[in-house]
Design a protein around this nucleic acid. Sequence first.
DNA 1: AATGGATGTCCG
DNA 2: GGACATCCATTT
Length: 645
Amino acid sequence: MYYYEVAPVRIIRAKQACFTYHHDQILSIGQLVSVSVGKQILTGIIIRNVSRPNYETKVISSVLPLPPIPKQLIDTACWMSSYYATHLATVLQMVLPRGITKKRRISASRDLSFSRDRTHFLLNETQSLAVDTLNSIEVGTAILHGVTGSGKTAVYIEHAKHILLRGKSVIVLVPEIALTSQLLAEFQQHFPSIIVSHSQQTEAERHRVWQQVLDSLSPVIVIGPRSALFLPIKSIGAVIVDEAHEPSYKQDQAPRYSALRVASVLARAHEAHVIQGTATPLVSEYYLASMAHQPVLTMRERAVKKTLEPNIEVVDMTNKALFRRHRLFSDSLIQNLTETLAAGHQVLLFHNRRGSAAITLCEHCGWSALCPVCGTPLTLHADLHRLQCHVCGKNNRVPTACPSCHGAEIIHKGIGTKLIESEIAKLFPEKVIARFDGDTQLATTLEKRYQELYDGKIDIIIGTQVVAKGLDLPHLRTVGVIQADAGLSLPDYIASERTFQLISQVIGRVGRSAHKTSVILQSYQPDHPAIKLGITQNYQEFYQTTLSERRGRGFPPFTYLLKLTCIYKTERAAIRNSQQLANTVKNSFPHVAVLGPTPAFYERQYNSYRWQLLVQSKKRSTLLEIVSIVPPSHWQVDLDPYTLL
DNA sequence: AATGGATGTCCG
DNA sequence: GGACATCCATTT
């Protein structure tokens, strides 16, 4: 008789993940089995074989007729479980497809191996140097720091070919937006069969893809969102993470993992490497790479030589003389729009809706209300008539006059895309306008209307963050940013980094051809480093500035963070319980800093109140200890949060 | 007596 | 996390 530790894919006990079962045959690790637990029958994975325990064991009911899950993937899942203090069963639910025991109809031969004409491109010197370096890497993480249009995709493709030739598979991760079709199309020109996984697949489709990978004997190329890391690939050679700065690489539900961290652990298990491709590497990741002496490959020039750099103009919103014709749109923006539209070209007006809510700033000099304790921007609570810091919880009175210029022009209002649309429609009544916002529908709407956008049938595009990403619009000539500093007023230590990324993306929308293009950026804080250095695309200086600021304030990469959110039906209970936990943590863990409790940025969600605590610690293990004393219900735990909101 | 909600215990 | 038991309050 053989004894095995089996991890069921559902939580059985809060503090235990594996249970011992027996079977009369030798089974391999990673084998999927059916076991009875209490009165239910559950699927489980064999984690290890053990000797006979001193208690009675049940027999493994059946062994699923499937190849075992690769050992490296199981090890990665176990690592995730401990690193993110999440039950192994919760992690395994990512690893196995839903409805794994269901019978599926025989796949309707969706073999999409249609052969296309393969475009052979010639790499420029920088690109081939990058490919050579990547090909020579054995393990670890390389950062491919290439400006928009520097031809990162071509580098990915060449490198992927190299890995395939070595008989190993490649995972290409893309952010979770429906705009990945361009990258996919380019890959399809070079590889006959690509395995695609995306968030809109049905349960049966996912199952089929998973089965296909599990059965595959030859190396594969997989393109998909962060969940593609969990496909049962036998031998991985490289994980390429495209747009590696994107926040969607952090899952916002348990297990709250960072795909960057998981990719590096998975890669290490496979003796493979990770490539983070982005125009704006995350400051923390760049720091990590330089500390570990990992390669950082910089590609400064655009791949196509004939392109014309866009003309960038910054409009100081505190200077009212520049806004004679409209309070939202500067005179030069209106003039530029008029000219571009008259010539029959396309314009894009971008506005960061988030953060442009109720913020407090001086319209005269651009001063904005910052917390005297921790420096984060303050949020107005109109009902209390107080300015509150959502990071450390300190309350401040609302100034009646600007502390900087003593003017009385303190404003609290924000701007919405709807307002922009109606105002722009008044200015250009005969033009076709399309507005994109609302986070979930946006991706599908964009997909549907992409052809119209691409063909230039829409004159004016108005939208929030997502329109600034990955869209390739050949008719686009002008991009206007209504208030570039909008995101800076968010009470989040990473806000300025996000703004820097955003400006880079916006600039990347134009200047992709030989046409004359322009970017007009309006801002109350034109001299803020994120904006100034974003415009000049000076990553190095932004990196150094941000790093020293983070060091000073004790934020990553110099500390680890733990975000604890307390959710109760009544505000009183939320406050009381978060206060209590804050005290417990402060008393039992003297070496950590506890910020809060403060109302969560999204204070009321699903008819409940949310208050949060932020814990900063030099040692990550201390945060894991803290997690273990957090009450199991009413609390959400987020280790290494990507955002404090 | 029947129903339903809240709470507690066990799970190899 | 879910199946099930047990307790207690409310409904008929």
